[in-house]
Nucleic acid binder design. Structure first.
Lengths: 203, 203, 203, 203
DNA sequence: GATGAATGAGCATTCATTCAT
DNA sequence: AATGAATGAATGCTCATTCAT
């Protein structure tokens, strides 16, 4: 009967907010700033979001959900442990790196706005399984305690993301390739395998 | 003749600012907030700092400088490569972890306010030398390209810091011990040595 | 042919509005607030009321009209002057006190939205007649000038209502019984009669 | 050292606020409205008041305190009970009536912002003493229970104020003289005395 | 130098009403 | 008629910085 909520409008707001939050920070970006560029009246923001906090929370949660789900699906479809590991390193790491805006949000303001540790734990479980399967395939006893495994994952994951964020923001000359090649080196050294390089994943 | 600036007052402002910036974020902390708790008039802040940005810049720069200098001095005083490495892992990593406020500033707002990559490059040079000397002592050819070395350091350094920051902020159950033990594990595995555990460094 | 307006829906809106206006004030209650709890769409409000002002005006006018009409009818049906006075004191005052919401509206925002003095004058005429008849019955010359009579009525009426409103809002320990017993005391003293207490009026 | 808080400025804000609140209501008057007419920047309001609520609270509390204190002082200086009663009726009632703005604030929004019942109880104690002394002087046993006395005072006080407020706002033709003359009539009838009319009190 | 009142642009959010559906 | 998304001016309040004292 009345006008329907326009999902497209919501997406536009979210995208512009993500862009500006990542570039200038959450607090330095006003709601007015967000709508200015996309020609949507301020009031409309509050049709689609509860408040400013809700915008960043949605941006992070939805970005993460999309990333996580597609990783989960792809891993489920691949039976070989070592190919699954390749998928993680050559498929999803680059994919994540492409979305610097999400990463920046995630690491700078995300802690205050979403249950980051829940996200991190799911990811640890997902990737932990890949690691374990690979170890089993290679006939290795897993040398890491579960606690060390979570630490390891957290360090590599956050470290890689932060390094990429840094390289974008400060011009430090580390490329995505450098990070990925180092990560794959570590894995290859640990498991004594050659990790088959995959073509970039389709979106 | 101008009255002396009161260095104690400056320190108090810096400490309170660091505390509040780390807890609530830079933008969410007003200059008024900073002086409220420490009973110093607003105007005085501008005797010691150019503006609000200058406060965070000083907090980070001075915190970093102090950390870096003491690391540099300690390394210079220790001739044995493996003991130097121990010093880094068991002496300075914990010391850094203790100063969560500095880490939080560093990782959340630091990028916008200080030349983080200059700091990171100095650190890479410093620690890179430790790594190289250790490799030489062990008669190993360094397997990492310089680029990979910087990537590696960046990933481990930022990853460790962010993991600790996270564990404090979100209650994710990773302790400083876990991080340190994982880092030392990696080093020991890479160099085939047993890294002697050092007593905590005095301040 | 136009669909019938749903009188029930109108009543529901009016009742909820009365409740919220009385509790939080007219300006502090949004039209959105009103419809939220009663599951009626905002747009519908404007089918039944011209605008927000119209809602409060109707609430007061209709509440008053109902009260006034039933007082008028009851008085018309009772021939004895002293019983008519009892009716006013023991029948209608308590009835009015029950409707605190109406009173609050009346006294707080009513002045700006309805012709309160017209209402007060009708009431003065109605009750003035009761007073005069009672005085005639008791063989008394009325000691009050018409102006004093209106003043008297206004003071007692508004004073009683305000006292009750106050006791509800602030917990001041004056009960409806206290007010009614004082009013009846004044009347009994003035006319030298014993006012027969009536059973509460049926709605 | 720095500029001193300007009590005059505070008074100007308070006076203008009182005027506008009384005329248009608290919620219908914006902080911007208040400063517009008196050429003071918005920010300065918050130097002198915590927030908008604080303005009305101060207006009521300070207006009441001034009124109450001067009533208290004047009563203390007058030994004769009947003259004290005259003082109340002919001295202070008119004085209160002059400050319609205070009354309006008091009765319309005051309940939400100040502990009105505390004020009313102090007043009841003060005037209750005058009534008792007069009764003793006249050799009368007080016929009212304490509860009835408070009710009586509340009804007369609030009724009188509201009647005056009404007459200003709606043009109902009741003058201050009418109210005062009715109140004095009641007192004279109750105590069988002639209340000596006093010249208006100096401010 | 020390102080803290002064400033006014800017902030996030609300809201009565309209009107496309 | 019914609906509820759309609207944008207006709200109360903040805040980095200045500068009169």
């Amino acid at each position: 009967m009345a006008r329907e909520r326009d999902e497209g409008k919501r997406k536009v707001i979210l995208a512009e907010a993500k862009r500006l939050f990542a570039e200038h920070g959450f607090h330095a970006t006003s709601v007015q700033d967000i709508v200015k560029g996309i020609d949507i009246p301020v009031g409309s923001v509050y049709t689609y979001f509860e408040n400013k906090d809700d915008i960043i929370r949605c941006a992070i949660d939805e970005g993460w959900a999309e990333f996580y789900r597609s990783l989960e699906d792809a891993l489920a479809a691949e039976p070989s442990p070592s190919l699954r590991m390749s998928l993680v390193v050559y498929g999803f790491l680059p994919r994540l790196f492409k979305d610097v805006e999400l990463i920046s949000l995630f690491l700078s303001e995300g802690l205050r706005f979403t249950d980051l540790h829940v996200k991190l734990e799911s990811l640890a479980r997902l990737i932990g399984a890949v690691v374990n399967d690979l170890a089993k395939e290679r006939g290795m006893a897993v040398a890491l305690s579960p606690k060390q495994a979570v630490s390891a994952l957290s360090i590599f994951f956050l470290g890689s993301l932060d390094t990429i964020r840094l390289s974008r923001l400060t011009g430090i000359p580390i490329s995505e390739r450098d990070v990925i090649s180092f990560i794959s080196l570590i894995i290859e050294a640990s498991f004594g395998i050659r990790l088959p390089e995959l073509p970039p994943q389709p979106r």
